[in-house]
Amino acid sequence: NQASVVANQLIPINTALTLAMMRSEVVTPVGIPAEDIPRLVSMQVNRAVPLGTTLMPDMVKGYA
């Protein structure tokens, strides 16, 4: 099963992502692949992401 990127904390809108904000977890539906975590660092979210939410490509500016 593919691990996805999950929010490790509440991430406010327009926040630049850091490693501490993300974790890898096997979830359904599948979100951004966990191997993309290094690429996500310093990218901004375009909405508030609650703790435990799977990051989807449309939630991260410049990812999709």
Results as ranks from 00 to 15, higher is better:
Arg23Ile: 06
Pro38His: 12
Met56Asp: 08
Ser24Leu: 09
Val49Asn: 01
Met21Gly: 03
Asn8Arg: 10
Val45Ile: 09
Ala48Asn: 12
Met21Cys: 03
Tyr63Glu: 05
Met21Ala: 05
Met56Trp: 07
Val45Tyr: 00
Lys61His: 05
Ser24Cys: 03
Glu35Cys: 03
Gly31Cys: 03
Val26Ser: 07
Leu51Trp: 10
Val27Met: 11
Val5Phe: 01
Arg47Ile: 14
Ser42Glu: 13
Met21Asn: 09
Val45Ser: 06
Thr28Gly: 08
Met59Arg: 03
Asn46Phe: 10
Ile11Leu: 08
Thr18His: 09
Val41Asp: 04
Pro57Val: 08
Asp36Arg: 10
Gln44Glu: 11
Pro12Cys: 03
Ala7Lys: 01
Gln2Asp: 05
Pro38Leu: 15
Val45Ala: 06
Gln9Lys: 10
Ser42Arg: 09
Arg23Val: 09
Gly31Trp: 02
Leu51Tyr: 05
Met59Leu: 07
Lys61Gln: 13
Thr54Glu: 01
Val6Met: 08
Ala34Arg: 05
Gln2His: 14
Gly52Ile: 01
Met59Val: 08
Leu40Thr: 02
Val41Phe: 06
Val30Gln: 12
Leu40Ala: 02
Asn14Ser: 04
Glu25Thr: 11
Gly62Asp: 12
Val26Lys: 11
Ile32Gln: 00
Asn14Tyr: 12
Thr54Leu: 09
Leu19Gly: 07
Asn8Ile: 14
Pro33Ile: 06
Val41Trp: 04
Gln9Asp: 13
Ser42Lys: 09
Val27His: 04
Val27Asp: 02
Val41Asn: 08
Asn1Glu: 15
Met43Glu: 09
Pro57Asp: 09
Ala64Arg: 03
Pro57Gly: 12
Thr54Val: 11
Ala7Tyr: 00
Asn1Ser: 13
Thr53Gln: 15
Gln2Ile: 08
Pro38Ala: 10
Gly31Glu: 01
Ser4Ile: 02
Met21Thr: 04
Glu25Ile: 13
Val60Asp: 01
Gly62Ala: 14
Leu17Ser: 00
Ile13Arg: 08
Glu35Trp: 05
Val49Pro: 01
Val5Asn: 00
Thr53Arg: 10
Glu35Gly: 13
Val6Arg: 04
Lys61Phe: 15
Gln2Cys: 03
Met22Asp: 01
Ser42Asp: 14
Thr18Met: 11
Gln44Arg: 15
Leu40Asp: 00
Ala64Trp: 05
Gly31Ile: 01
Ala3Met: 06
Ala3Ser: 08
Met59Gly: 03
Val30Gly: 10
Gly62Phe: 09
Asn8Ala: 11
Val45Phe: 00
Arg23Trp: 04
Glu35Asp: 14
Ala34Ser: 09
Ile32Ala: 02
Leu40Met: 06
Met43Asp: 04
Val41Pro: 03
Glu25Ser: 10
Ala16Trp: 09
Val49Ser: 02
Val5Ile: 06
Pro50Lys: 13
Met56Val: 10
Leu17Arg: 00
Met43Lys: 06
Asn1Ile: 15
Ala64Asp: 14
Gly31Met: 02
Ala20Asn: 06
Thr15Ala: 09
Thr54Ala: 08
Ala16Tyr: 07
Tyr63Trp: 15
Leu55Phe: 07
Ala34Asn: 06
Ser42Val: 04
Ala20Pro: 05
Asp36Phe: 11
Ile11Gly: 01
Met21Tyr: 04
Val30Ala: 15
Gln44Pro: 08
Met56Leu: 14
Ile32Leu: 07
Leu19Val: 14
Val41Met: 15
Gly31Lys: 01
Gly52Tyr: 05
Val45Glu: 01
Gly31Ser: 02
Tyr63Met: 09
Arg39Gly: 08
Ala48Arg: 11
Thr28Trp: 13
Gln2Arg: 14
Met56Arg: 08
Val5Leu: 04
Met21Pro: 01
Leu40Ser: 00
Ser4His: 02
Pro50Asp: 12
Val5Lys: 00
Ile13Leu: 07
Asn1Val: 13
Gln9Arg: 15
Gln9Tyr: 07
Ile37Tyr: 03
